Computed example of a mutant assay.
Amino acid sequence: MTTTIETAFAADWRAWHDAHEAARADEHGFLAVTSIRWLTWTPERFDDAPGVWSTSEDGPVVALADGESLEIDGAVVTGTYRFGPLAERSSITVVWRTDDETTVVEVARRGGSDIVRPRHPSSPIRTGYRGTPAYAPDERFVVDARFTPFDEPREVTVGSVVDGLQHVYAAPGTLSFDLDGPRTLLAFNGHGDGLHVLFTDRTSGVTTYAANRSLDIDAPDAEGRTRIDFNRATNLPCAYTAHATCPLPPAENRLDVAVEAGEQLPA
């Protein structure tokens, strides 16, 4: 009976991680990014995207030359296109088609600046990707947790892998659990009603990526009960490419325990 449970647990984890790897290596996934361009008020042309790009208080603008076009929401755009002001951490994707390949150009706002990130399927980072190793799934790293909400969600500012850049997240409360002793993590708002944490631990910089790991957690029930599965801790894009603006964990989330679960250093 024990073997059946462990096999089912491992198989479920494997299916999840295979899907995560497939999304990461998608032809327009993050491994396809070829550059990150920080837009200014001075118009500038880039070698991996069409048009001349700039930004202002009114948001990003692209001026396309004769013969150049983009597709935005399925419509072909020529000439000058104004995206309008972008909300922090929002992204718009536009499509650039050439005879060689179809490129997705991400137009986004990160850390108070507007950026452009072209995603080419032929990116050497993507074509050379050989997968990410991970610890074997271990039920010891699935722990019951208690969510304690703050009276009001708090704005928490964290650093970034980009020097001088900061990210601001809404933190609704903390998660308390036991993993070789009592532990606490500051939780951010996640997908839907779920929670999200960024953390480091004693494996960081040894067998796992030094800057951070990321983990989604199911929404707590009415009594604040939820479960943390560290086997599903993943690397953020900055573990693979310099064209990322990933956040760093808050100081509270540096766990003084070796979390030997989840994704390891990229191959």
Rank of each mutant, 00 (worst) to 15 (best):
R82F: 04
G131H: 02
G74S: 00
D114T: 02
S90Q: 13
A87L: 11
E101L: 01
F83N: 05
D73Q: 07
I72R: 00
D114N: 10
Y81D: 10
R109F: 11
D99V: 12
T103A: 07
E88R: 03
F83M: 07
T102P: 05
S90W: 04
H120L: 06
T78W: 07
R126H: 14
S122L: 04
L70S: 04
D99C: 09
R109C: 10
V104Q: 12
G84V: 05
Y81F: 15
Y129I: 12
I72A: 03
S90L: 04
S90E: 12
R89K: 13
V94R: 01
T78C: 09
V104D: 03
V105Y: 05
R109V: 04
G74M: 01
G112L: 01
V77S: 07
G84M: 05
L86K: 06
P85Q: 11
D100T: 14
A87Q: 12
T103M: 08
T98F: 08
R119P: 08
R117V: 05
V95W: 05
R130G: 14
T98V: 09
A75V: 02
E106P: 08
R117T: 07
T80L: 02
G79Y: 14
T102H: 01
P124I: 05
R117D: 04
P85N: 04
T103L: 10
D100P: 00
S91Q: 11
V116M: 02
G79R: 04
Y81A: 06
S90N: 11
R89V: 06
V77N: 03
T93V: 13
S91C: 07
Y81E: 11
V107Q: 12
L86Y: 13
R130M: 05
A87V: 13
S91D: 03
R130E: 14
V105L: 14
I125T: 15
E106S: 14
S123I: 02
T102I: 10
T102M: 08
V116Q: 05
S91V: 09
R82V: 14
A108E: 10
T93G: 10
V77P: 02
P118T: 07
V105G: 10
S91E: 07
E106V: 12
R89Y: 13
V77K: 02
Y81K: 04
E101Q: 10
D114E: 08
R130W: 03
G84W: 05
R126Y: 13
T132F: 02
P118H: 09
T132I: 03
T127S: 15
T102F: 00
T80H: 03
T93C: 04
Y129H: 15
E88W: 14
E71F: 01
I125H: 07
R82K: 10
S113D: 11
P121E: 02
T103S: 09
I92R: 14
I115T: 13
T78A: 12
G74Q: 00
V77F: 01
V105C: 08
E71P: 00
V107D: 13
G74P: 00
V104W: 15
G112K: 07
R97T: 14
V104M: 11
G111D: 03
P121H: 00
V76P: 01
D73G: 00
V104S: 06
T103N: 06
P85F: 06
D114A: 02
V107K: 15
W96R: 13
T98L: 06
S123D: 11
S90H: 10
S123A: 14
I92V: 15
G84I: 06
E106C: 12
V95D: 08
V116N: 07
R130I: 11
H120F: 03
R82A: 15
I115N: 01
T132A: 08
E106I: 08
S123L: 06
